[in-house]
Design a protein around this nucleic acid. Structure first.
Lengths: 246, 246
DNA sequence: AATTATTGTGTAAAATAAACACATTCTTTC
DNA sequence: GAAAGAATGTGTTTATTTTACACAATAATT
């Protein structure tokens, strides 16, 4: 037993030559990136899917993804996909998890790195030109192609956790927003009701909202004040908090 | 501008044939798994490295890793590496992050999936037979081969965060442990001093420690009581907490 | 001018976390 | 075997954070 173990250890120690030949010839896999792109519209959390381009899965929606190019970093690849599909680039994006089950994809062994990104649906640069693309309600995503439902679930959970630790939510809102909109956003992401007064208190205490001295327009009731998120202030504060950032 | 964008979108929609040929021929990369294996010994957090097998990096230590085999899932691959190197399998293991910078590895394009695992250094099955392997102090890791320092840092930060949210620490301890040992562990991982009374209170309140009605042996002072971690109780509790689990 | 809907604000209670001291028990030393 | 040393084991008080909760002010609509 100990010998067998010892043996396998010795076997697993490889020379540079062995490694190089393995890297160059065998043991290669296709690598892709899949993006779970969230948006927020009409007080609902939305997620962008595309009609699957594989016949067998044609009735199903799938995530936006592509194979990673030989001279492309993972993050670069994710930004490329986002840019191609939405026209946006300066957005929040985070690598979430890598999925590599042997038979997860019908076209062969494809390992995929999942990214979560948050975009502002009202952004003037946003262009969803492809009519195969569609915004779905994030709280009622049913079956997706391949293992994309699992990937989506993982990213959604990650978003729910992240948003409680860091002020990411602003990425989903326009530059100017009311506190009601901000609260609606959090309620939508977390599927909970929040106390309005405590919510306001909390965000004011964090002290990275800037009062724009403007008020909402075209609302059928008393308009609220508009704020913007102060990234600089937040960055400064972040340093003071725990160095542990994820 | 809009046309160019539109164009790139159209170009990026691929047929099944295109995808299949890409998956099968071009656009492939070598994929590896690297394990950051933590242990706890003499009140210090330890991490297991191996002397790099690449000449250029021979003076440096590196993580334990290997290429993912064609018929192997990522988790499977990580467990295989751990088993080969340590003889252990039933351990805590978590995928942390995937590193895919184009030039991160000298042997070519190698994308690596980093795993963090926690083992009990005193485990009777543990066998570090390879004298190229060495336990290093986790708080003083200097230069490593390739981008392994970055990978280690990422995993270490993840561990520090996780250990504050979930009772992982027990994986690093023997089955029976005293509260002092448990506290030493947390202090080592987080590099902080904790109040002994509040620490005890907290863990007792969580209510998944089982008093074994035994006491420490061979300690040069009054021996403490021994406890074990009750996994079943923890699993039950976990469900009651937020469904958001990472 | 009255009604309606939502904004904006403060305080009290409850829960959680932090600070803190002394008696007890076993080991070692004299 | 008596005294000294060193760490265990325990409760209370204070500070901080979170939760619960009500009413006046403002703009839009009728």
């Amino acid at each position: 037993m100990a010998d067998a173990l010892n043996n396998s250890i010795l076997k697993s120690i490889k020379t540079f030559k062995t490694i190089q030949s393995e890297v160059q010839s065998i043991n290669r896999v296709a690598l892709s990136v899949d993006c779970v792109i969230f948006g927020f519209d009409e007080n609902k959390l939305k997620v962008l899917f595309i009609r699957s381009d594989l016949k067998k899965y044609q009735s199903k929606w799938s995530l936006l993804g592509d194979l990673v190019k030989p001279e492309e970093c993972l993050d670069t690849s994710a930004y490329r996909i986002l840019k191609q599909r939405t026209g946006l680039d300066d957005v929040y994006m985070e690598q979430v998890h890598t999925f590599g089950d042997v038979h997860r994809h019908p076209a062969g062994r494809v390992v995929t790195v999942a990214y979560c990104s948050l975009i502002n649906i009202q952004h003037h640069k946003l262009k969803i030109l492809d009519n195969e693309l569609h915004w779905h309600d994030a709280d009622s995503v049913s079956e997706l192609a391949f293992d994309h439902k699992e990937i989506f679930d993982t990213c959604f959970l990650r978003l729910q956790k992240r948003v409680q630790e860091h002020p990411l939510g602003f990425s989903l809102l326009p530059g100017k927003f009311s506190l009601r909109e901000l609260q609606n956003l959090y309620e939508a992401i977390l599927s909970i009701k929040l106390d309005r007064r405590n919510f306001r208190k909390k965000f004011f205490a964090m002290d990275f909202l800037v009062d724009l001295n403007e008020i909402e327009k075209n609302v059928p009731h008393r308009p609220g004040r508009l704020y913007k998120f102060d990234y600089d202030k937040y960055e400064k504060k972040k340093k003071k908090w725990s160095g542990i950032d994820f």
